[in-house]
């Protein structure tokens, strides 16, 4: 029925950012998040911002989508900025606002912290905008691979994630179906006191759980019938391979880190 079910915020495209190995994307973002905290000069912030913005442009994701993704956190960015603005009491007084002295240092620190915040959110949302959830799952399985040595259930975790992804749309359709059936029996999900609305959720949740358990049981049997016996001796169709573009990304990133550390004040 509803054909608009998109999990996460993935925007399909064949841009170079989309085609990067998800492991490279995750690794680079991880280190990006680390080095952002070392930036302390205009120049170092400049190269970080340049990197993030050019990635955004290369991803071919419409600017409006990126902004939409940032919407819920704008408030936080601005709040952080104001907090620093009013709390910091170092350096010269820059100007006063409604009788409150705003110090130069506060202005600089506020701007720096908000910028950091903004950059972090931008690069991480670029990851989810350009990488399908299943790719992220594959990458996590690969990156956590070494943990198998300490008996961490990496394969099981990844399988669990991918099955969840597979069943989210199914369960959403089911939710819609059951809520319609209960609405037909006189349940009002939309109006009424808060207490009544909470109560209205029970006839929805119980059938959903029952059906999810039944599905799980049948799925487990189907998996067993198809020869599933855990991760051991299993081969994989999905294969992650580092291409030239991934190495290029690493090179650019190392260059970025180098410039950043050289331009620190």
């Amino acid at each position: 029925m509803s054909s608009s079910l998109i999990i996460g915020q993935y925007i399909p495209s064949d841009s170079v950012i989309h085609r990067l190995d998800p492991r490279s994307k995750i690794a680079v973002i991880f280190f990006y998040v680390v080095i952002v905290f070392f930036a302390n000069s205009v120049m170092s912030y400049g190269v970080l911002a340049l990197f993030a913005l050019s990635s955004a442009v290369l991803s071919k994701v419409p600017f409006s989508y990126i902004m939409k993704g940032l919407k819920p956190v704008w408030f936080l960015v601005i709040f952080t900025f104001l907090l620093h603005l009013f709390v910091t009491r170092e350096g010269e007084v820059a100007f006063s606002l409604f009788g409150w002295a705003v110090y130069e240092e506060g202005l600089i620190q506020g701007a720096a912290i908000s910028l950091r915040f903004f950059l972090l959110i931008l690069v991480t949302s670029l990851l989810t905008l350009t990488t399908t959830p299943i790719e992220i799952t594959d990458a996590i399985e690969e990156l956590l691979g070494p943990l198998k040595k300490v008996k961490f259930p990496v394969h099981e975790l990844a399988l669990m994630m991918s099955i969840s992804l597979r069943f989210i749309p199914t369960l959403m359709q089911e939710t819609e179906k059951i809520s319609k059936a209960q609405a037909s029996r006189g349940v009002d999900f939309r109006t009424g006191a808060f207490k009544d609305r909470v109560k209205a959720v029970v006839p929805l949740l119980v059938p959903l759980f029952v059906s999810a358990f039944k599905r799980a049981e049948e799925l487990a049997m189907a998996m067993e019938a198809r020869g599933y016996q855990g991760g051991e001796g299993r081969t994989k169709l999905r294969e992650l391979k580092l291409e030239r573009r991934d190495w290029l990304l690493f090179a650019v990133f190392i260059l970025l880190a180098a410039v950043l550390f050289l331009t620190r004040s």
């Binding site: 299943i134 992804l165 039944k214 189907a222 998996m223 198809r226 599933y228 299993r234 081969t235 169709l237």
Partner: peptide, 23 residues
């Protein structure tokens, strides 16, 4: 309740992966 993969291709592969067939 027997569709395991996130795409058609992945689902067809599931049984073969279990039996350890080469890619």
């Amino acid at each position: 309740n027997q569709f395991v993969g996130t795409t058609v291709k992945d689902d067809v592969a599931f049984g073969m992966e279990n039996h350890g067939m080469p890619r």
